[in-house]
Amino acid sequence: MSLKANWSYPTAIRFGAGRIAEIGEACAAAGIKKPLLVTDKGLANLPITASTLDLIAAAGLGRAIFSDVDPNPTEHNVAAGVKVYRDGGHDGVIAFGGGSGLDLAKMVAFMAGQTRPLWDFEDIGDWWTRADASVIAPIVAVPTTAGTGSEVGRASVITNSETHEKKIIFHPLILPKVVICDPELTVGMPPMITAGTGMDAFAHCLEAYCSPHYHPMSQGIALEGMRLVKDYLPRAFADGTDIEARGQMMSAAAMGATAFQKGLGAIHAISHPIGAWHHTHHGTTNAVVMQPVLLFNRPAVEDRLEMAARYLGIEGGFQGFYDFVGELNAGLKIPANLTELGVKDPDIDALVASALQDPSVGGNPVEMTVENTTALLKACF
Protein backbone atom coordinates (compact mmCIF):
# COMPACT_ATOMS: atom_id res chain seq x y z
CA MET A 1 0.00 0.00 0.00
CA SER A 2 1.44 3.37 -1.02
CA LEU A 3 1.49 5.91 1.83
CA LYS A 4 1.02 8.90 -0.45
CA ALA A 5 -2.11 11.03 -0.81
CA ASN A 6 -3.55 14.54 -1.03
CA TRP A 7 -6.19 15.43 1.57
CA SER A 8 -8.35 18.55 1.92
CA TYR A 9 -9.54 17.75 5.46
CA PRO A 10 -9.10 19.59 7.75
CA THR A 11 -6.90 21.61 5.36
CA ALA A 12 -4.84 20.89 2.23
CA ILE A 13 -2.37 18.14 3.19
CA ARG A 14 0.38 16.78 0.92
CA PHE A 15 1.20 13.46 2.55
CA GLY A 16 4.06 11.15 1.62
CA ALA A 17 7.79 10.46 1.71
CA GLY A 18 9.91 13.00 -0.15
CA ARG A 19 7.17 15.60 -0.51
CA ILE A 20 9.24 18.32 1.17
CA ALA A 21 10.47 18.81 -2.42
CA GLU A 22 7.10 20.49 -3.05
CA ILE A 23 7.73 23.29 -0.55
CA GLY A 24 7.99 25.90 -3.33
CA GLU A 25 4.67 24.78 -4.84
CA ALA A 26 3.08 24.78 -1.37
CA CYS A 27 4.15 28.40 -0.79
CA ALA A 28 2.76 29.38 -4.20
CA ALA A 29 -0.54 27.67 -3.39
CA ALA A 30 -0.68 29.67 -0.13
CA GLY A 31 0.19 32.92 -1.93
CA ILE A 32 3.56 33.33 -0.18
CA LYS A 33 6.43 34.96 -2.10
CA LYS A 34 8.81 35.88 0.74
CA PRO A 35 8.44 33.37 3.59
CA LEU A 36 10.07 33.37 7.02
CA LEU A 37 10.87 29.82 8.11
CA VAL A 38 10.23 29.55 11.86
CA THR A 39 11.65 26.60 13.78
CA ASP A 40 13.20 25.81 17.16
CA LYS A 41 16.81 26.09 18.33
CA GLY A 42 17.39 22.34 18.22
CA LEU A 43 16.34 22.02 14.58
CA ALA A 44 17.95 25.21 13.29
CA ASN A 45 21.33 23.66 12.48
CA LEU A 46 20.19 20.19 11.41
CA PRO A 47 20.58 18.92 7.81
CA ILE A 48 16.78 18.65 7.24
CA THR A 49 16.47 22.37 7.94
CA ALA A 50 19.41 23.33 5.73
CA SER A 51 18.09 21.23 2.84
CA THR A 52 14.60 22.74 3.25
CA LEU A 53 16.09 26.25 3.16
CA ASP A 54 17.97 25.20 -0.02
CA LEU A 55 14.66 24.13 -1.60
CA ILE A 56 13.02 27.44 -0.60
CA ALA A 57 15.92 29.44 -2.04
CA ALA A 58 15.91 27.36 -5.24
CA ALA A 59 12.22 28.25 -5.68
CA GLY A 60 13.18 31.93 -5.66
CA LEU A 61 11.64 32.58 -2.24
CA GLY A 62 14.72 33.77 -0.35
CA ARG A 63 16.42 32.17 2.64
CA ALA A 64 15.17 33.56 5.96
CA ILE A 65 14.98 31.72 9.27
CA PHE A 66 13.96 32.53 12.84
CA SER A 67 14.76 29.93 15.52
CA ASP A 68 14.77 31.67 18.91
CA VAL A 69 12.04 29.38 20.19
CA ASP A 70 12.02 27.83 23.67
CA PRO A 71 10.73 24.25 24.27
CA ASN A 72 7.67 25.86 25.89
CA PRO A 73 7.44 29.04 23.76
CA THR A 74 6.63 32.33 25.50
CA GLU A 75 5.26 35.76 24.60
CA HIS A 76 8.91 36.95 24.38
CA ASN A 77 9.60 34.40 21.61
CA VAL A 78 6.48 35.64 19.80
CA ALA A 79 7.60 39.28 20.02
CA ALA A 80 11.10 38.43 18.77
CA GLY A 81 9.69 36.46 15.84
CA VAL A 82 7.24 39.21 14.91
CA LYS A 83 10.10 41.75 14.85
CA VAL A 84 12.16 39.57 12.49
CA TYR A 85 9.07 39.02 10.30
CA ARG A 86 8.25 42.73 10.06
CA ASP A 87 11.88 43.86 9.63
CA GLY A 88 12.34 41.34 6.82
CA GLY A 89 9.22 42.39 4.95
CA HIS A 90 7.88 38.85 4.84
CA ASP A 91 4.44 37.90 3.52
CA GLY A 92 3.97 34.46 5.08
CA VAL A 93 5.41 31.86 7.44
CA ILE A 94 6.73 28.35 6.98
CA ALA A 95 6.13 26.58 10.30
CA PHE A 96 8.82 23.89 10.55
CA GLY A 97 9.37 21.52 13.43
CA GLY A 98 7.64 19.97 16.43
CA GLY A 99 4.87 21.41 18.54
CA SER A 100 6.80 24.35 19.94
CA GLY A 101 8.15 25.49 16.57
CA LEU A 102 4.77 25.10 14.88
CA ASP A 103 2.88 26.88 17.66
CA LEU A 104 5.32 29.79 17.71
CA ALA A 105 5.31 30.08 13.91
CA LYS A 106 1.52 30.27 13.82
CA MET A 107 1.61 33.06 16.42
CA VAL A 108 4.18 35.03 14.38
CA ALA A 109 1.87 34.85 11.36
CA PHE A 110 -1.10 35.80 13.55
CA MET A 111 0.45 38.66 15.54
CA ALA A 112 2.53 40.28 12.78
CA GLY A 113 -0.36 42.54 11.78
CA GLN A 114 -2.24 42.89 15.09
CA THR A 115 -2.18 46.00 17.30
CA ARG A 116 -3.59 44.46 20.49
CA PRO A 117 -1.44 42.41 22.93
CA LEU A 118 -1.19 38.64 22.57
CA TRP A 119 -3.20 37.75 25.69
CA ASP A 120 -6.22 39.66 24.33
CA PHE A 121 -6.77 36.69 22.00
CA GLU A 122 -6.79 33.90 24.57
CA ASP A 123 -9.27 31.11 23.83
CA ILE A 124 -12.03 32.49 26.05
CA GLY A 125 -15.54 32.99 24.66
CA ASP A 126 -15.36 34.95 21.41
CA TRP A 127 -12.11 36.78 22.19
CA TRP A 128 -10.74 35.57 18.83
CA THR A 129 -13.11 38.01 17.10
CA ARG A 130 -10.99 40.86 18.52
CA ALA A 131 -8.32 40.06 15.92
CA ASP A 132 -8.08 41.83 12.57
CA ALA A 133 -8.56 38.79 10.36
CA SER A 134 -7.51 40.66 7.20
CA VAL A 135 -3.85 40.92 8.32
CA ILE A 136 -3.24 37.32 9.44
CA ALA A 137 -0.40 36.01 7.27
CA PRO A 138 -0.70 32.69 5.39
CA ILE A 139 1.05 29.65 6.87
CA VAL A 140 2.59 26.54 5.31
CA ALA A 141 3.22 23.91 7.99
CA VAL A 142 5.86 21.18 7.86
CA PRO A 143 5.88 18.92 10.96
CA THR A 144 9.13 17.13 11.80
CA THR A 145 7.69 15.17 14.74
CA ALA A 146 4.58 13.02 15.02
CA GLY A 147 2.78 14.19 18.12
CA THR A 148 1.04 17.52 18.63
CA GLY A 149 -0.68 17.70 15.26
CA SER A 150 -0.34 21.49 15.51
CA GLU A 151 0.01 21.53 11.72
CA VAL A 152 -3.75 20.95 11.42
CA GLY A 153 -4.79 23.04 14.44
CA ARG A 154 -6.44 26.44 14.81
CA ALA A 155 -4.70 27.26 18.07
CA SER A 156 -1.28 27.65 19.68
CA VAL A 157 -0.14 26.97 23.22
CA ILE A 158 2.04 29.82 24.53
CA THR A 159 3.44 30.01 28.08
CA ASN A 160 2.94 33.26 29.97
CA SER A 161 6.44 33.78 31.38
CA GLU A 162 5.18 35.89 34.29
CA THR A 163 2.40 33.61 35.58
CA HIS A 164 3.90 30.28 34.37
CA GLU A 165 0.55 29.41 32.80
CA LYS A 166 0.10 27.81 29.41
CA LYS A 167 -2.41 29.86 27.43
CA ILE A 168 -4.29 28.76 24.31
CA ILE A 169 -4.55 31.38 21.57
CA PHE A 170 -7.24 30.54 19.01
CA HIS A 171 -8.24 31.86 15.61
CA PRO A 172 -9.75 29.94 12.66
CA LEU A 173 -7.32 31.60 10.22
CA ILE A 174 -4.17 30.26 11.87
CA LEU A 175 -5.07 26.87 10.43
CA PRO A 176 -2.22 26.45 7.91
CA LYS A 177 -3.22 26.88 4.25
CA VAL A 178 -1.04 23.95 3.15
CA VAL A 179 0.60 21.14 5.15
CA ILE A 180 3.45 18.92 3.99
CA CYS A 181 3.57 15.67 5.98
CA ASP A 182 6.82 14.00 4.91
CA PRO A 183 7.69 11.06 7.19
CA GLU A 184 11.32 11.17 6.01
CA LEU A 185 11.70 14.37 8.06
CA THR A 186 10.95 12.42 11.26
CA VAL A 187 13.57 9.71 10.73
CA GLY A 188 16.18 11.55 12.80
CA MET A 189 13.95 11.87 15.88
CA PRO A 190 15.65 10.21 18.89
CA PRO A 191 13.73 7.29 20.45
CA MET A 192 12.86 9.36 23.55
CA ILE A 193 11.24 12.10 21.43
CA THR A 194 9.57 9.49 19.21
CA ALA A 195 8.02 7.99 22.37
CA GLY A 196 6.95 11.28 23.97
CA THR A 197 5.47 12.80 20.81
CA GLY A 198 3.78 9.53 19.91
CA MET A 199 2.13 9.34 23.31
CA ASP A 200 1.00 12.95 22.89
CA ALA A 201 -0.88 11.84 19.76
CA PHE A 202 -2.35 8.93 21.72
CA ALA A 203 -3.42 11.26 24.57
CA HIS A 204 -5.17 13.57 22.10
CA CYS A 205 -7.10 10.66 20.60
CA LEU A 206 -7.89 9.07 23.99
CA GLU A 207 -9.16 12.29 25.58
CA ALA A 208 -11.19 13.26 22.52
CA TYR A 209 -12.73 9.78 22.47
CA CYS A 210 -13.66 10.00 26.17
CA SER A 211 -14.90 13.60 26.10
CA PRO A 212 -18.65 13.85 26.85
CA HIS A 213 -19.23 16.44 24.13
CA TYR A 214 -21.10 15.43 20.96
CA HIS A 215 -18.94 15.21 17.85
CA PRO A 216 -19.26 11.81 16.12
CA MET A 217 -16.78 12.70 13.35
CA SER A 218 -14.09 13.38 15.93
CA GLN A 219 -15.11 10.21 17.77
CA GLY A 220 -14.37 8.03 14.76
CA ILE A 221 -11.09 9.78 13.98
CA ALA A 222 -9.96 9.43 17.61
CA LEU A 223 -10.66 5.70 17.66
CA GLU A 224 -8.68 4.96 14.48
CA GLY A 225 -5.91 7.30 15.67
CA MET A 226 -5.50 5.19 18.82
CA ARG A 227 -5.24 2.06 16.67
CA LEU A 228 -2.47 3.59 14.53
CA VAL A 229 -0.46 4.50 17.64
CA LYS A 230 -0.96 1.02 19.13
CA ASP A 231 0.21 -0.67 15.94
CA TYR A 232 2.98 1.67 14.77
CA LEU A 233 4.51 3.60 17.69
CA PRO A 234 6.43 0.57 19.03
CA ARG A 235 7.78 0.00 15.50
CA ALA A 236 8.85 3.63 15.06
CA PHE A 237 10.47 3.55 18.51
CA ALA A 238 12.36 0.32 17.75
CA ASP A 239 13.52 1.40 14.27
CA GLY A 240 13.54 5.10 13.47
CA THR A 241 14.07 4.38 9.77
CA ASP A 242 10.82 2.39 9.43
CA ILE A 243 9.13 4.78 6.97
CA GLU A 244 5.75 3.02 7.08
CA ALA A 245 5.63 3.33 10.88
CA ARG A 246 6.82 6.95 10.70
CA GLY A 247 4.13 7.76 8.14
CA GLN A 248 1.34 6.12 10.11
CA MET A 249 2.44 8.03 13.23
CA MET A 250 2.30 11.30 11.27
CA SER A 251 -1.28 10.40 10.35
CA ALA A 252 -2.09 9.61 13.99
CA ALA A 253 -0.70 12.99 15.09
CA ALA A 254 -2.84 14.91 12.60
CA MET A 255 -5.85 12.77 13.56
CA GLY A 256 -5.38 13.51 17.27
CA ALA A 257 -5.35 17.26 16.70
CA THR A 258 -8.38 17.03 14.40
CA ALA A 259 -10.26 14.86 16.92
CA PHE A 260 -9.68 17.04 19.95
CA GLN A 261 -12.07 19.64 18.60
CA LYS A 262 -14.38 17.36 20.65
CA GLY A 263 -12.47 18.24 23.81
CA LEU A 264 -9.51 17.28 25.98
CA GLY A 265 -9.54 16.45 29.69
CA ALA A 266 -7.60 15.88 32.88
CA ILE A 267 -4.47 14.52 31.18
CA HIS A 268 -3.88 17.89 29.52
CA ALA A 269 -5.27 19.95 32.40
CA ILE A 270 -2.55 18.44 34.63
CA SER A 271 0.19 18.26 32.02
CA HIS A 272 -0.02 21.94 31.03
CA PRO A 273 0.82 23.44 34.47
CA ILE A 274 3.49 20.80 35.14
CA GLY A 275 5.16 21.65 31.84
CA ALA A 276 4.89 25.39 32.49
CA TRP A 277 6.35 25.18 36.02
CA HIS A 278 8.78 22.28 35.72
CA HIS A 279 9.68 22.43 32.00
CA THR A 280 8.91 18.77 31.32
CA HIS A 281 8.34 17.39 27.82
CA HIS A 282 4.63 17.77 27.11
CA GLY A 283 3.92 14.43 25.43
CA THR A 284 5.99 12.48 27.94
CA THR A 285 4.14 14.20 30.79
CA ASN A 286 0.83 13.19 29.18
CA ALA A 287 2.02 9.59 29.08
CA VAL A 288 3.11 9.63 32.73
CA VAL A 289 -0.25 10.87 34.05
CA MET A 290 -2.39 8.80 31.66
CA GLN A 291 -3.02 5.75 33.89
CA PRO A 292 -3.95 7.78 37.01
CA VAL A 293 -6.38 9.81 34.87
CA LEU A 294 -7.92 6.62 33.46
CA LEU A 295 -8.65 5.43 37.01
CA PHE A 296 -9.97 8.88 37.93
CA ASN A 297 -12.39 8.81 34.98
CA ARG A 298 -13.26 5.10 35.19
CA PRO A 299 -16.87 5.52 36.45
CA ALA A 300 -17.70 7.67 33.40
CA VAL A 301 -15.67 5.95 30.66
CA GLU A 302 -15.64 2.25 31.53
CA ASP A 303 -18.24 1.21 28.93
CA ARG A 304 -16.81 3.48 26.24
CA LEU A 305 -13.27 2.17 26.71
CA GLU A 306 -14.58 -1.39 26.66
CA MET A 307 -15.79 -0.66 23.10
CA ALA A 308 -12.45 0.91 22.21
CA ALA A 309 -10.58 -2.10 23.59
CA ARG A 310 -12.61 -4.40 21.35
CA TYR A 311 -11.78 -2.27 18.28
CA LEU A 312 -8.10 -2.18 19.22
CA GLY A 313 -7.95 -5.94 19.75
CA ILE A 314 -7.27 -5.61 23.49
CA GLU A 315 -8.84 -8.21 25.78
CA GLY A 316 -10.24 -7.47 29.23
CA GLY A 317 -12.35 -4.36 28.68
CA PHE A 318 -11.43 -1.28 30.73
CA GLN A 319 -8.85 -3.14 32.82
CA GLY A 320 -7.26 -4.55 29.68
CA PHE A 321 -7.07 -1.05 28.17
CA TYR A 322 -5.55 0.33 31.38
CA ASP A 323 -2.95 -2.47 31.46
CA PHE A 324 -2.17 -1.91 27.77
CA VAL A 325 -1.33 1.76 28.45
CA GLY A 326 1.05 0.69 31.22
CA GLU A 327 2.73 -1.89 28.98
CA LEU A 328 3.02 0.61 26.11
CA ASN A 329 4.64 3.19 28.41
CA ALA A 330 7.04 0.61 29.82
CA GLY A 331 8.03 -0.55 26.33
CA LEU A 332 8.73 3.07 25.35
CA LYS A 333 10.82 3.63 28.53
CA ILE A 334 8.42 6.34 29.77
CA PRO A 335 9.06 7.26 33.45
CA ALA A 336 6.65 5.52 35.83
CA ASN A 337 5.52 8.71 37.61
CA LEU A 338 6.14 12.45 37.85
CA THR A 339 8.87 11.96 40.45
CA GLU A 340 10.82 9.78 38.00
CA LEU A 341 10.15 12.40 35.31
CA GLY A 342 12.11 14.87 37.45
CA VAL A 343 9.34 16.94 39.04
CA LYS A 344 10.84 17.88 42.41
CA ASP A 345 9.22 19.80 45.31
CA PRO A 346 5.94 20.47 43.50
CA ASP A 347 3.57 23.11 44.84
CA ILE A 348 0.50 20.85 44.69
CA ASP A 349 -1.95 23.63 45.56
CA ALA A 350 -0.59 25.93 42.84
CA LEU A 351 -0.62 23.11 40.26
CA VAL A 352 -4.21 22.19 41.16
CA ALA A 353 -5.33 25.82 40.92
CA SER A 354 -3.67 26.13 37.51
CA ALA A 355 -5.12 22.80 36.31
CA LEU A 356 -8.65 23.89 37.22
CA GLN A 357 -8.17 27.08 35.16
CA ASP A 358 -7.01 25.10 32.11
CA PRO A 359 -9.45 25.06 29.16
CA SER A 360 -9.12 21.24 28.97
CA VAL A 361 -11.06 20.84 32.24
CA GLY A 362 -14.41 21.27 30.49
CA GLY A 363 -13.89 18.18 28.34
CA ASN A 364 -13.13 15.78 31.18
CA PRO A 365 -15.82 13.09 31.68
CA VAL A 366 -15.71 13.49 35.50
CA GLU A 367 -16.14 16.99 36.92
CA MET A 368 -12.82 18.20 38.34
CA THR A 369 -12.86 19.85 41.78
CA VAL A 370 -10.14 21.08 44.12
CA GLU A 371 -10.54 17.95 46.23
CA ASN A 372 -10.53 15.26 43.55
CA THR A 373 -7.89 17.01 41.40
CA THR A 374 -5.58 17.25 44.42
CA ALA A 375 -5.96 13.51 45.01
CA LEU A 376 -5.42 12.82 41.30
CA LEU A 377 -2.25 14.93 41.15
CA LYS A 378 -0.81 13.24 44.26
CA ALA A 379 -1.49 9.85 42.64
CA CYS A 380 0.78 10.87 39.74
CA PHE A 381 3.86 11.02 42.03
Rank of each mutant, 00 (worst) to 15 (best):
P71H: 11
T373V: 11
E367P: 00
I139H: 07
E75D: 15
A146H: 09
C205I: 06
F260D: 01
S156Q: 06
I348L: 12
T144P: 04
L102S: 11
P359S: 13
K167E: 11
P172V: 08
A266C: 11
A379D: 01
R304G: 06
I124E: 14
P191K: 00
W277C: 06
P212M: 04
A253G: 10
S271T: 14
G363P: 02
W7F: 15
E327V: 15
E165S: 10
P143R: 05
R246F: 12
A300Y: 08
G316Q: 00
V178S: 01
T241K: 02
C27D: 00
C181L: 11
E75Y: 06
W127C: 13
D182P: 01
A259P: 10
A300P: 07
G363F: 04
S67Y: 14
M189W: 04
H204F: 08
A308W: 01
D323F: 04
L294C: 06
G153D: 02
A137Y: 02
T74C: 10
A195R: 00
N329F: 02
Y232N: 04
F110G: 06
L305H: 03
A201V: 03
K333C: 10
T144Y: 10
M199R: 03
D103K: 10
G331S: 05
E25P: 00
I13Q: 05
A208C: 03
N160L: 05
F237V: 09
I136F: 02
K230F: 08
K4H: 11
L3F: 15
S2D: 15
P35C: 09
I94D: 01
E25M: 07
K83L: 07
L233P: 07
P273D: 04
T186K: 00
I274V: 15
G24L: 03
A353T: 12
S100V: 00
A353V: 07
D68L: 08
S251N: 13
I174Q: 11
D103E: 06
I243G: 04
G99Q: 05
F318V: 13
V82I: 08
L377V: 14
A257N: 14
V179L: 07
T197R: 02
S354L: 03
D87K: 14
W277Q: 10
L61H: 14
T11Q: 13
L351P: 03
P346I: 11
M111W: 01
V84I: 13
A12D: 09
G89Q: 13
A109G: 15
M107G: 13
E151M: 02
C205P: 09
S67P: 07
A336Q: 11
A208I: 05
T197P: 05
G247E: 12
K344I: 13
H76N: 15
A141L: 05
G313C: 06
P176L: 00
A21T: 04
G81A: 06
N77A: 10
D182I: 00
A26K: 12
L233C: 06
D358V: 09
A195H: 03
F96E: 07
K83G: 03
E327P: 02
M192T: 11
G18Q: 12
K33Q: 13
I169C: 04
A131N: 08
D200V: 01
R227F: 01
I274T: 14
